[in-house]
Design a protein around this nucleic acid. Structure first.
Lengths: 225, 225
DNA sequence: TGCCGAGTTTAGACGGGTCTAACCCTAAAG
DNA sequence: CTTTAGGGTTAGACCCGTCTAAACTCGGCA
């Protein structure tokens, strides 16, 4: 049996791996979980003992298959909860992350199944993030780019908004940036800021690189010029 | 901020107080929470430091007003969850207790409010137990008796089934013993076993004293002979 | 009144998860 | 090839919640 904290570490490593596909460093995990490096080191010892991570001292970790399965289970819980909260309890997409984080470790398999059923086995959560399937097979990473990676003038369809900050998410929703909308990339400033016009809003919106890089597109809606 | 475990102790003390209205002994809490007496003693020290319980060494504890408020909050969470799970996620009343126990410490005030709203501010949970109101005022103990306390021949209406064992609850439901049904007390055996006929079942059901004492009646449907 | 047994508390240990301080490894720069 | 800065690990401490073993208190009974 794994503790909640261990599950949090596995989930953090999983998510960091999705972003960098490199070995994950102690300090990255420490930042993600808001904890000090020695704390991470000692937890990695334990996870290694249980064969949930592969480790090379001083060089970071990767998840073993078993570790990845645990992480996928937690991510599935998290995203199903996010979907359920927005669909059935009238939560806004900006609010669901914190609540799902609280609950994800504490629901039974039965609860998970009932929620998935009530939702009709959804494939994505309210942010457009894919929900791992019940068999916990590692999803093949769908190719995608952030809006920061397109040419000016391109029109793209938002697939996923991978930010977790409620304030940022509220702001984005207010300015028409949500999964499913079309975005015309108007300008990419030298310092990385992206200005775009949403099909759902009157005025264009400008996003610093740190935010724009979280707005993902599955494929360009029109070929690039 | 209180830990989950502290909340569990306060809830346990609250519930034991409902049953005995006497000072609660270390060993009673130990039994309830499946823990040893020294463990309880050390936790009572901490709860006393925080002025959540009144304590007399060697003589048991009672909740302070503050402790009671915390307990009521947890009980409210628990019973709202039970109600929600049966109403909206198709759980059977025999299954909800364990799931609610898992979740009761981990829901936000916001979640609590939304669930209460979705249910229309219910007053009882699926077992007929009263749900503390949002203001957490201590409910005045509604007078009631268990079916074991009536004369043979009396017809009563079941108000609450205060058992937590899923097997027992399933059995009772199968034999027509649920909140709202009428029960005719057919026989009370010298060793305490109660035999009764339910308005919802063909055959009478016999319940040992330990189970019968958990089946509560608000008031007799007919005056006793 | 004094003893005894049931039950409570104290003492001390342990594992989990966290921290700070000190030490050490790695890799990049000269 | 050597130095060094940055980051990782080790060492040791702390709090929490739990345990077992031992000491103690209370209340009933002789």
């Amino acid at each position: 049996m794994l503790s909640d904290v261990m599950e949090d570490y596995l989930k953090a490593i999983y998510q960091l791996q999705r972003e960098t596909d490199d070995r994950i460093k102690t300090s990255e995990i420490a930042d993600e979980l808001d904890v000090t490096s020695p704390t991470v080191t000692s937890m990695l010892d334990k996870l290694e003992d249980r064969e949930l991570v592969d480790r090379e001292k001083y060089r970071g970790v990767t998840l073993t298959d078993e570790g990845e399965t645990v992480a996928l289970e937690i991510v599935r819980h998290h995203r199903l909860l996010e979907a359920y909260l927005t669909e059935h309890l009238d939560y806004d997409w900006s609010e669901v992350h914190a609540e799902a984080d609280r609950l994800e470790h504490h629901i039974s398999e039965d609860f998970e199944a009932r929620v998935a059923d009530a939702l009709g086995e959804p494939e994505v959560d309210p942010h457009g993030s894919p929900i791992p399937s019940a068999d916990l097979e590692p999803p093949t990473r769908p190719e995608g780019k952030s809006i920061a990676e397109f040419e000016e003038g391109t029109v793209v369809t938002v697939a996923e908004v991978a930010d977790r900050d409620p304030e940022v998410l509220s702001y984005l929703a207010e300015h028409g940036v949500e999964p499913g909308v079309e975005l015309e990339i108007i300008e990419i400033a030298p310092f990385g800021m992206v200005t775009a016009r949403s099909s759902e809003a009157d005025d264009p919106v400008s996003l610093p690189e740190s935010v724009a890089s979280h707005v993902w597109v599955a494929a360009p809606a029109e070929p690039e010029p």
